[in-house]
Amino acid sequence: MQTIISSEILTSLVPGESAIIVAIQTDDALRQRLLALGFRVGKRVELIRKASFSGPLQVRIGTTDILLRRNEAAKIAVEKS
């Protein structure tokens, strides 16, 4: 087994911090959508901001900004470098 000790989930980043995506653990439909939006293993993702009242996150991958709920973000494992 590989060491996944250092991996965290996307929601644990703080605004301005970035990390590398190591796994996307969602159902197929959401996974397809995330792939199309640029979420791929090995890509760098930056957390831009979090909405108040536990609202969605704004993240940036390459040149695309994406909003996603914390629920969904929790299914994306990242590794801080």
């Binding site: 959508r33 939006l37 969605p56 695309t64 909003l67 996603l68 709920r69 629920n71 969904e72």
Partner: peptide
């Protein structure tokens, strides 16, 4: 339903 949306410039 998951909420995932792009944020255009």
């Amino acid at each position: 339903e998951p909420f995932v949306l792009e944020l255009p410039p």
